[in-house]
Design a protein around this nucleic acid. Structure first.
Length: 429
RNA sequence: GUGGGCGUAGUGUAGUGGAUAGCACAAGAGCCUGUGAAGUUCUUAGGGGGAGUUCGAAUCUCCUCGCUCGCCCCA
């Protein structure tokens, strides 16, 4: 902190170490297990993609594309971008590898991986952040939407989060949404004096966003505004009804939010968000969000095929786990420490360590230290149960001292027998 | 893009214009040249950077960089 180091991480980007690694690993393994249970295939896509994949896919009117992408031109003259989100990449892979001719739906997930958005960092928002992502491509069935919601909810539950709430809405499709938009704009325009400055701008650029403006006056106006539910075409209406019926079966804490509108262009019909309904939760923002995107595959050059997906924000989830002091069961440290003294013993220790590794018994060491005292000190700090002491004398005699750390009791055993001896002792404890 | 708060050793902090910038933990070495937990001694290491005000700045002012929180937007 004091002397600014010559090099440090870029704004909004972080090294992940120590405590945070544990959370990341925990989230990774929960996602892995759940994905396998629900029959998702793993996919990893490049961090760098053609810029157009996102400007077209995510949508050129979105803030994400307009102002938040890390875009540049390669030496070869290609326009490329660091991925700001995962869905277009997965859709690209679906098209590129002809997955349309696999049995549908194709269920894909990618586990915790980095994404980039050039934004001002704040709580739960970073320029490099991590998401996991679940996508179900090639089929339109309301049970899929609901299952994705359930998967998201299950992941958070499994990670120990509480007070979760799911908000859901339907934003219609290309058939019905334009009608709604028109009547919403009409309504808002009549009352636009009341709107905040941001919303006045949104009225032109992205009127649906006004629906979740936090300003009191805007909300009052929105409360009496036309609701999209009343404008859904028959297909969307029935679909949404089915989704809600499935949801009711599942005992999930959900509520309808008629004003929920997502920020990406490709969503159709079902949209949802999962977050924690507490003060901390609100600060961290949306944990998992997703929805249906029936037009995206075609838009990106594939056949006309529907799809639905969701993504989770790893840092946000992690921050809540930290605040809630969710305990992570961590792998226990080695129970054995190998201390050595003298050149010959050091050489012999190197070999002995390998023998332990082959026997799959974890052993800690500090070979670079020469003082026995210090090595025992380290063993103590690590909390190992036994310390093996291998000195000059022992090395010559082909033996090693086994010291029980709690009692201080020591026993000399033959080097050839030490693995068997330790295995026996560890079994007992 | 925009607004607020903050920047003192690795970490956590004390010091609101004047002395060698203090403390705790951590780290390393010794007391004890082959035996840990205590004790003790020592060592490493510090006011983000730059300009200004002043006899004198960690302290006041400005700029800049960084962190952080919010708006916007989103996972």
């Amino acid at each position: 902190m004091s002397k600014k180091p010559k090099f440090q991480t870029l704004t909004g980007m972080h090294d992940i170490l120590g405590e945070e690694q544990k959370y990341f690993q925990k989230i990774y393994s929960v996602v892995e297990n759940i994905a396998q249970f629900y029959g998702f295939q793993k996919i990893e896509t490049p961090i760098l993609e053609e810029t157009e994949l996102f400007s077209k896919g995510t949508g050129s009117s979105t803030d994400v594309v307009q102002k938040e992408m890390y875009s540049f031109r390669t030496k070869g003259g290609d326009y490329v971008s660091l991925r700001p989100e995962g869905t277009p990449s997965i859709v690209r892979a679906y098209i590129e590898h002809g997955m349309i001719s696999r049995p549908q739906p194709v269920k894909l997930y990618h586990n915790v991986a980095p994404f980039f958005r050039y934004e001002r960092p704040q709580a739960g928002r970073y320029r490099e952040f991590h998401q996991f992502d679940f996508e179900v491509l090639g089929e339109k069935n309301s049970v899929i939407d609901v299952q994705l919601i359930q998967i998201g909810y299950n992941i958070l539950k499994e990670l120990g989060l509480k007070d979760l709430i799911i908000e859901i809405n339907s934003i219609g499709d290309a058939q019905c949404r334009p009608y709604y938009k028109k009547s919403l704009v009409n309504y808002l325009r009549k009352h636009q004096v009341v709107l905040c400055a941001d919303c006045k701008r949104r009225l032109k650029e992205n009127p649906l966003r006004i629906l979740d403006c936090k300003k009191e006056k805007c909300q009052e106006l929105v409360n009496t505004a036309p609701q999209i539910i009343d404008y859904l075409c028959e297909e969307c209406h029935n679909y949404f009804k089915e989704v809600l019926e499935f949801l009711d079966e599942l005992d999930l804490p959900y509520r309808l939010n008629p004003f929920l509108a997502r920020g990406l262009d490709y969503y159709t019909k079902t949209v949802f968000e999962i977050f924690e309904e507490t003060e901390e939760g609100k600060k961290q923002g949306i944990l998992i969000a997703g929805g249906r995107y029936d037009g995206l595959i075609k838009l990106l050059g594939g056949k006309d095929a529907p799809a639905c997906g969701m993504a989770g924000g790893v840092e946000r989830i992690m921050n809540i786990m930290k605040n809630a002091e969710v305990k992570i069961t961590q792998s226990s440290p080695p129970k054995i420490f190998l201390a050595q003294l003298g050149e010959l013993a050091k050489k012999r220790s190197l070999k002995l360590l390998e023998e332990f590794r082959k026997a799959k018994i974890p052993v800690a060491e500090s070979l670079s230290r020469d003082s026995l005292k210090i090595q025992l000190g380290i063993a103590d700090k690590l909390g190992t149960e036994y310390t093996l002491i291998l000195g000059q004398k022992e090395a010559l005699e082909q033996s090693v001292i086994v010291r029980e750390m709690t009692t201080g009791r020591q026993k000399t055993v033959k080097l050839d027998n030490v693995i068997a001896e330790m295995r026996k002792r560890l079994k007992k404890s």
